[in-house]
Structures are given as C-alpha cells and as structure tokens.
Design a protein around this nucleic acid. Structure first.
Length: 862
RNA sequence: GCCGGUGUGGCGGAAUGGCAGACGCGACCGACUCAAAAUCGGUUGCCCGAGAGGGCGUGUGGGUUCGAGUCCCACCACCGGUACCA
C-alpha cells in the first residue's frame, strides 16, 4: 500500500470510517492554516464574490441554515477550484426584535443574548466546515458597524432622501411599533402575526419612491441572472401605472384638485368624484359643507379608521361612502360631479382622489349601483378596433348623428344593467372630438388636450410607498438627529458619531408605544450643535433592514474606522457575483439593498448600480409540512446532526435531495443514503494501490471515460445550480470505480487512481472533510480545497461506438451498436437489415425513412 | 379577481425534440453470519404472458412532428405572489 492510514482518524473495525473524527481533524487544520482567506492586491487571479444572506442570531443554526450555507459553500469551493480568488465572508444581522423580546422576558441585556447566540453560530459554522474568510466578520449591532448606518442616514438626509412626515402608518399593537409596508403580510405583522392597524404618526422615511423608475427599469439588467419569480415580484411591488394627472375645479373652493387616472380617455364618462375619507381633502370638503354632512362624515371616518387592514382588504365587500354635498367640475365638459368620500379610494395612492367613471371601472360601477349614481358609456367595446375607423357622421354642431333604427349591441352589455364594467378595447363614443378613436389613441389625444388646456398632463403612479424606517424599539441603530427647542431638526455632528445605545440598566424595554430610549433621560439630553441650547435626541431606532441594505460592502474592510467601505475595494469585488438566500427576501431586503446601492452610485462611491449580479433562491426545509421553527417544535437540531451523521453527510443529503430552488421535506432527506455513499467513496480511496506518479493514460479507458465525462459536465451543472445532479454523477463515478476495482481493471490500475482523485476534488464541493481525508489517503499534502480543476481530455469524451435507436411508426423496435462516425446511408442499411426490424415490419412497406446518424433511424409505413 | 409557477414509479427526483424513470430512498430476493447490524450481488412503472414477447404509460383533451415529458391550443388540479393601486 502506498499510503498510511491516518493515525488521528479512527478507523472502525468493520471498514467504515469515523466521520466525526475526520471532521475534527480537518477543521483543526483549516483553523490553523486559514486556507480560504481571500487574496489581496498581489493575487492576480480573477475575483469572485460569493455571499450567503447573513443570518439573524436567534438560537442556534437549524436545517434551513444547513441548506442555505451548504449551497453557498458549494459555489465558493467551486470557483476556488476553477482558479478564482474567492471572497466568501460571514457576518451577523444582529439587531432586531427577537433579542429585545428575549431580553424583556428574562430581564436581561439584549447584548448578552445576541452575542452568546453569535458565538454559538460561529462554532456551528466551524463544525459545518464552511470555507469562510474568517478575517472579515461583522455584527451589525457593533458600534463599529452601526456608526456607518448613521453616516448613511445623514447622507440620505443631506440629499433629501430621508425626511419626516405625518401619515397613517402600519402599527403592530403587539410589538408596539410601526412597520414598513413590506413588513405587513396579509394584514398582519410579519414578525408576530398580530393584526396591523393604522395610526397617524410622524416618522422618518427614506424616499425610495424617487428611485421607483430605476428600481423597475434596472430589473431588465438582472433578467436571466435572478430568478424570474423574484423579478416579477419586484415589478409588481413597484407597480408602475402610466396615465395622466387631471385637474378639477371644486365649486366654492380656491385652487384645483388633481386626480390620477390610467384611463384619461374616459373623462367624458365621469359621473361623480371620490375622495379618500382619511385624506386632508376629505376633511376640508366636509368642513365646508352642512352640519349634517359634517356629522355623517365624522361617523364614517371613525368607522373606517377602526377597521384593520384585514377587514379592509376582504374582497366582495359592499361599497360604503358618504355624499359631501360638494361638486367637482369636469374640465372637459363643465359637468358638475357630486363628490363622495368612500374608503375604496386610498389616501396614500395617487392623489387620494379619483374621477369615477362607472361605465368603465368595476369599482366605480359597484359604487354607482350601490348609491344609484348615473352610468355613462363612452367606449363602445363592441366596435372593432382593428381595421378601418368607421366613418361617423357629424351634424352641424359636431355631434355624431345617431344612425337610429336598429338596437345597438351596446344595449345588451349596458353596465348599469349587467353590473359589469366595460374595461376592454373599443371605440370612443359620447366623447366629443375623441369619438371614433381607439382606446389607445384616445388616451394620447386626451393627454394632449388636457396639456393644451393646462388642466392635466401625462403622469405615472406607483404602488411602491416610501420606506418607513423609524422603530419604537431599543435594539437598533439610534437615529442620529437632534430635535432643538425651537423645533428644528439637525444632524448629530460627525465627530460625535457613533451615537451609541445607552446602557440598558434601568431602562424599561417593554413595549409601550414609545421608544424605550425616550426613558434614558440622560442619554436623551444633548445640545443644539448650532446654538448650544439644550436639545433632545431622536428616541427612535432604525429599521434593521437599513443595516442589511449595504452590509455586503462592509465586508470589504470590516474593521475600517475611517469610512463605511473603501470605494476602491468595492469596485474591485462588488457587485456580489453569487448571492444566495431564501425567497422570503424577494422584496424587502433585496429591494432596499438595490435602492441603497443606487444612492451610493449617485454619491459617486460605487461604480455599479445593482448590488447582486446573480441571485440563487433556495427553497425551505420543511418538517411535517411546515417551516422548521422552535415555536412549532419541529426542529432537527443542527448541533446534534454535526456529530451524527456529521457535517459531510448532512451537506450531501441536502444537496442530493432535489433542486436548489425547491422546498425540501426533511422526511425525504436521507442522511443514511449519504453516509453510505461517503463510505463507498472513502473505501475507493483506501483501495487505490498505485502511486501518485502513475501515468493515467495507461489506465482502463472505460473508467477514464466516466471520470472525464464528469470532469467535463460538472462545471456546467454547478453553474446551473444542478447540485443534485452533480452528486448523482459522483455516485455513478464511485460505483464505476468500485466495479473496476472488484471485477475490472483492479486496484492498481492508473484509471482507478485518477477516478479516486477526481472524486476527491469534486466531492470537496459537498463533503469537504472527507474530500480532504481522501486526498491525504491518496498520498498528497496540502488541501484538496485549493486544487485546480482537472480539465477533461477531449479525446476521452468521444465515444467509439454508440447505441442507435430504430423506430417504426414512432415506436422503438430495435437498438444497434454502431460506430460513432457512421454515415446515414450505412446506418439506414444496417437498420433495414436488422432482424427485429424485419420482424416488426411484418411485410409492411417503408414509405419514409428519417435518419439522424448516429442516434436515430425512424421508419414510417403509411 | 389579476400576475406567475408546477403536475413524471410507493417516495425524492433525472432526461440539448430522439431508448422516459439517471441517481438515490424504500421494498423484495440472495450471499456472508449461530443470528442481527454493516457490507456485497440481484429484482423493482403498470398490465397480459411460464417464457420469448406484447400492450399501456410523464394531470386531462386536442394539435404540430418521422418522432413530444419537452413545442402549440384548450381545460383541470395544486402551489406562490398580490389584491378596492384609480
């Protein structure tokens, strides 16, 4: 035997191996040599930045983490083998509610809970064998990190992108804090599940809506590199609508009111006007009306405000509203439109008011039918929109002459009767100079007319709202602003940053609707930097999504005390080449990170506009049909699984379980199958008897072909994230090698060594501990994790003979072994002569033959 | 409602328009063993047949093609996103 079995890896008597001993042995060596640190300026290899979405340190890792970080490591190790200088850092998203809630429960400091959990995570990641660059660790709850959140906030403030406004906000009554729109899921708090209510508060916002167009348009760049699903979700979330702003006069009121409409073509069909009950305009209009109206409006407003989002969003809910006894004037025809307040119009979309065109909008129609308001059809959806424009005869006043006589097909689809709004294509009627135009042309014409009259213009509107970043909680980044006695708001001076959190001692963290920091009396007291007069700090902290919106840049110099990140390093490493994490961040985190990246670009700090060049979304790990979680009690303990079955088996089992993007049922994950496979691989390495200097070309060709096909195919499979297929192919290679050893070329054949070495190198992506052990058994020093990829020999990828299929009328009737380079005529001759073909034909005549040499011959008999 | 995705053995899943079910789990049979575990070998889509062989088969119905899991049309089921966004 050319090798010495490792002394410190205990070898059990029955021919298996001790996975845990091997794991510990190689983890110690990695810790000592630190082989996965990213190369610096002197490193001339091309760079790859591989990043897993950083974890939140609640408790220990679980199988969801095991999945995600196994994939991250596959990608990082792959690119290292492929000759890249790989950056693969790890950090912790360590501010946030769970730490605070745990602290409240135990009367402890959230810091202690957080950092104890982080220590456990670090230990677990070491035990998992993840190939991180451990020199770049960051925790967002360190002052050295959140100091730069404060820097970022102030830069946004300077650019007008951070601002305060009073507005109805999402309020979680359980967590006693506001929530961003993105954190409300089905009307409930994303974290605790409590029903969210609206509350009018003055809060800090980031003006992400200024970037709506770029956030939408730049998604085109990501097409093909991000999952289609995520791109779609972001597009829907931003929700751009194109149409027009139209201005209406209101009787008895100075100035005009603007509404947004995607259907300005239907302006002649407007029969009433609706304002959101919780808008300032509604309050103003009601105030200027009769006492009776004021009282009815007040009652209505209160009933609307009592509703939760869930009630409000329930479908098929009857329309409600109150008539304000005021009138808007249609700018195109001077018609008086009664103004209603109704909750189907939202205060924070568009301008909080709409022109109602019941004939062509379902919601307006439902309302009109509920309150008996007129319906006026202005688009004939029965008229053809392609082909020639029908000639419409006009009388002397330019009004179309009704041809009369026959009943118009429109009567049968009259929305007032059917209750179905006509939203489709058609031609304009009852619309003055627009008559006869198609919907599309009419929209363009109306916009022109409004612009000419000064009563409107083309406009866009977005579903996306500004990002509410204030939080009434303790465990987050303090907002670095000062409220002066005379009501100004000024930034904390740069030299006083970081503005660190006060000691938790003596603070009441329990949720009470205002920030716990407000109770830190001494901490709150400061001075107006301009006047020296006493002033107060802002008691709120930032949404933790601010922390995670730029952390990938902080890894490039995690301990830099002079700047958030060095632009030079950022432009060398970023954007992230492979970003890996769960689809639950499809909107929140990814949208915010994209936004902040664009702001940094505008500031001239980075040269790219998108943070993540490619995105891999892994599915979830489920147990009993639901996501593993402590509260559900369906956890598979990570720490225990590292001992048995061990890190390698867990990683292989997960990678093999199915496609990366699909959910995995833990019941379907076979760690015993993975263990068996790993033991077989180990035994193959054990059985190799040749020396490392054998000449592979002298080895068994059949086995060499299997090895080289895998060497050729694996890179493409990894890049397509078909990790399960790569593992399957590795199993095939190990099986083929086993066969060669036992009943073929024998253990001394160079092809057996070559195959074992290739197995170790590729297995490193999934089972790095065993791969290192095999590499050592095979007689090599150094880490297999750093071995360059072995390129396939192209001559071994070409087969001498192939299996050719003969089909008769679409059914396979025979297979032939033929030379790979056979020509069509020869192949057809062989096929016609084949005994099984003759038998299947049973005398029928071949009427057509299609030959695709060397793979297929297809005969037809009719 | 709107937008998107997915339907393949008992199970997880493979399959550039060219032998469907790779690889594995499970199950069954056998070897080794006093026995069990581990390991090794074999069988395993369904139906008919002792066998050779034949028929059927990728949610359903149609279509394109010499040839369809794959492309097109319609439908069904399930999953995800979003939802009074004017």
């Amino acid at each position: 035997m050319s090798h010495t079995p490792s002394l410190d890896a205990a070898v059990p008597a029955e021919g298996g191996y001790d996975a845990y001993a091997i794991q510990q042995k190689w983890q110690a060596r990695w810790a000592e040599k630190d082989p996965f640190r990213a190369g610096g300026d002197e490193d001339t290899r091309p760079r790859k930045y591989v990043l897993g979405m950083f974890p939140y340190p609640s408790g220990d890792l679980h199988m969801g983490h095991a999945e995600s970080y196994a994939y991250v490591d596959v990608v990082a190790r792959f690119w290292r083998h492929r000759g890249y200088n790989v950056l693969n850092p790890i950090g912790w998203d360590s501010f946030g509610l769970p730490a605070e809630n745990a602290a409240i429960q135990r009367g402890a400091d959230p810091r202690e809970w957080t950092y104890a959990n982080i220590d456990q995570h670090k230990k677990s990641f070491r035990e998992y064998g993840s190939s991180y660059d451990w020199s770049r660790i960051l925790h967002t709850s360190d002052p050295g990190y959140y100091r730069w959140n404060q820097w970022l906030f102030q830069r946004l403030y300077e650019r007008g992108l951070a601002y305060r406004k009073q507005s109805p906000v999402n309020w979680c009554p359980n967590d006693q804090t506001v929530l961003a729109n993105e954190q409300v899921v089905d009307g409930r708090c994303e974290r605790c599940g409590a029903e969210v209510v609206k509350k009018k508060l003055t809060q800090w916002y980031f003006k992400i809506t200024d970037y709506a167009d770029r956030l939408l348009d730049d998604l085109n760049q990501l097409e093909g590199f991000w999952p289609q699903k995520v791109i779609r979700m972001q597009r829907n979330w931003i929700g751009r609508s194109v149409g027009a702003d139209i201005e209406f006069e209101i009787e008895g009121r100075e100035g005009r009111v603007t509404v947004f409409s995607t259907r300005p073509d239907t302006l002649h069909g407007a029969t009433f006007f609706v304002v959101a009950p919780d808008s300032d305009l509604a309050a103003e209009l009601a105030a200027g009306s009769s006492t009776a109206v004021r009282m009815r409006f007040q009652d209505y407003l209160e009933s609307v405000q009592r509703e939760t989002d869930i009630e409000r969003q329930s479908t098929d809910r009857p329309k409600t509203g109150v008539f304000l006894e005021r009138y808007a004037i249609n700018p195109v025809n001077g018609e008086r439109l009664p103004i209603w307040a109704a909750d189907y119009v939202l205060a924070d979309y568009g301008h909080g008011a709409v022109m109602a065109v019941p004939a062509h909008d379902q919601r307006d129609l439902d309302f009109a039918r509920a309150f008996d308001l007129p319906v006026k059809v202005v688009v004939d959806t029965t008229a053809p929109v392609t082909g020639a424009i029908p000639i419409i005869e006009l009388d002397d006043d330019g009004v179309p002459i009704d041809p009369g006589g026959e009943e118009s097909p429109l009567d049968s689809i009259d929305p007032a009767k059917t209750g179905i709004a006509l939203t489709g294509e058609g031609r304009m009627i009852n619309s003055g100079t627009l008559d006869g135009l198609s919907k599309r042309n009419a929209i363009a014409r109306m916009v022109e007319q409004l612009a000419a009259a000064g009563t409107g213009r083309a406009a866009k509107s977005y579903r996306l709202r500004d990002w509410l970043i204030s939080r009434q909680r303790f465990w987050g980044t303090p907002i670095p602003m000062i409220h002066t006695e005379d009501g100004r708001i000024v930034p904390v001076p740069e030299d006083q940053l970081p503005l660190t959190l006060p000691d938790v001692q003596g603070l009441d963290l329990a949720p009470k609707g205002t920030s716990p920091l407000g109770g830190a009396t001494e901490w709150m007291q400061t001075v107006d930097p301009e006047t020296g007069e006493p002033a107060l700090r802002d008691p709120d902290t930032m949404d933790t999504f601010v922390d995670s919106s730029w952390y990938f840049l902080r890894f490039l110099a995690a301990s830099d005390e002079t700047q958030a990140f060095p632009p030079r390093e950022a432009n060398k490493w970023a954007p992230v080449d492979s970003y890996i994490g769960g689809v639950e961040h499809a909107i929140l985190h990814l949208l915010y990170a994209r936004f902040i990246t664009k702001v940094l670009f505008d500031m001239g700090l980075v040269e790219f506009t998108e943070p993540f060049s490619s995105l891999i979304n892994q599915g979830m790990v489920l147990l009993d049909g639901s996501k593993m979680s402590k509260s559900k009690g369906n956890l598979v303990e990570f720490a225990a699984s590292m001992v048995d079955p061990g890190a390698d088996a867990v990683r292989v089992a997960i990678a093999f379980a199915g496609p990366v993007e699909d959910d995995i049922n833990w019941e379907d994950v076979s760690t015993t199958g993975a263990q068996k496979f790993l033991a077989r691989a180990w035994r193959v390495a054990q059985d190799v008897t040749s020396d490392p200097d054998v000449i592979w070309a002298e080895g068994d060709t059949a086995l060499r072909r299997v090895t080289h096909r895998l060497l050729a195919d694996a890179p493409g499979l990894v890049e397509q994230t078909k990790f399960n297929v790569v593992v399957a192919r590795l199993m095939e290679l190990v099986n083929a090698t086993r066969k060669a050893i036992d009943s073929g070329a024998g253990p001394a054949d160079p092809a057996v060594r070559e195959s074992a070495e290739a197995t170790a190198m590729i297995l490193d992506l999934f089972a790095p501990h065993l791969a290192e052990e095999m590499w050592e058994i095979l007689g090599y020093d150094g880490f297999v994790g750093l071995v360059p990829w072995r390129n396939a020999d192209p001559t071994l990828l070409v087969e001498d003979t192939v299996t050719s299929v003969v089909q008769i009328d679409g059914k396979v009737r025979a297979t032939l072994q033929v030379p790979a380079r056979i020509d069509a005529a020869e192949l057809e001759r062989l096929a016609r002569a084949d005994e099984r073909v003759v038998r299947s034909l049973a005398g029928r005549e071949i009427t057509r033959a299609v030959v695709r040499a060397p793979k297929v011959v297809s005969f037809s008999t009719h």
